[in-house]
Design a protein around this nucleic acid. Structure first.
Lengths: 156, 156
DNA sequence: ATATTAAATAAGAATAAATCCTAATTAAGA
DNA sequence: TCTTAATTAGGATTTATTCTTATTTAATAT
């Protein structure tokens, strides 16, 4: 549990009481870094903390979303997923499987921000912009390592 | 039922058998034009066709999505919504209510397409790009009529 | 260290959306 | 009209999530 202090500091920054349950949930979402479902988080936690209640995990995840510690990831399927990454980023979605990967592209980010600064939407205050790029992954689940490429993807 | 022929032609173009149930569902999604939930569709249909089964509506919606007649709209909440619009467009989401509006912006669309043509994502074939603009609506639910504005929004 | 108290949790019941199942029905082509 | 594969009704079932309440606990003040 190397990043224990990182976790507790995140919790206290968010003005949340530091409880074993919250530590376990935040650790799980950070460890399961590819957008786990609530169920995956629950399974992960059960291994070390067999008696943390299901409802507690759901409630804790919701609390973290409210406090901005994690984000919800929408899919076209019916299960909610969660994301511990806090830097602005988008997502690649497989149209045939449930694979989701992060898509970090500062240049794109900048372009979109610039566009919306120049083209305000009438009567709408933008808080966040998420790009869902839907398509097909052409490789198996492995890290893209080519350093010359424009876009990074986190390993699955 | 003025657009009856439009509906039947859409169905036959999609190589689907033309049934009263399918006509009713497609009509409902087109009529309820602000991204109805399955439940809203069911309620709408029940008025004229009291004995179309719930499961049929779900199945029919799913069939239409597969055939590309309608699209799924996923929200941060847990309910699936549907969209009959077939031209490429994005969505504005209220961060505090469940309001969703269409956001049509051909210039933005063109810019994004151009960007991804110039910056291919390695090992990924793009099929669709959806922009989720999350924020707050500053007006009540009414149509934006200013013709000079860049962005159109369908009325709620 | 201890007491206080508001916040958090366990446990499982309850809810709600969506799916599944099977027999009966129906649309479209022969 | 007949045939047949596709579709539907009806309802049970599943699954994700929320809710409820008594109990426990973390943080603060004493």
């Amino acid at each position: 549990m190397k990043n224990a202090s990182e976790i507790t500091s995140k919790l206290s920054c968010a003005r949340l009481k530091i409880t074993p349950q919250r530590i376990a949930v935040l650790e799980a979402v950070m460890e399961l870094n590819n957008h786990p479902t609530a169920e995956k988080v629950i399974d992960f936690i059960k291994a070390n903390h067999p008696n943390i209640a299901t409802g507690t995990v759901y409630k804790t995840l919701e609390t973290f979303v409210e406090k901005g510690l994690i984000k919800k990831v929408k899919t076209d399927r019916d299960i909610m997923r969660y994301d511990a990454m806090t830097v602005p980023h988008h997502h690649l979605y497989s149209s045939s499987t449930d694979r989701i990967e992060d898509f970090i592209d500062p240049e794109l980010q900048k372009m979109i921000e610039k566009y919306f600064n120049a083209h305000k939407i009438p009567n709408f205050k933008i808080e966040d912009i998420k790009l869902q790029v839907i398509g097909e992954f052409l490789t198996e689940k492995k890290k893209v390592t080519n350093k010359n490429q424009q876009h990074e993807r986190k390993k699955y």
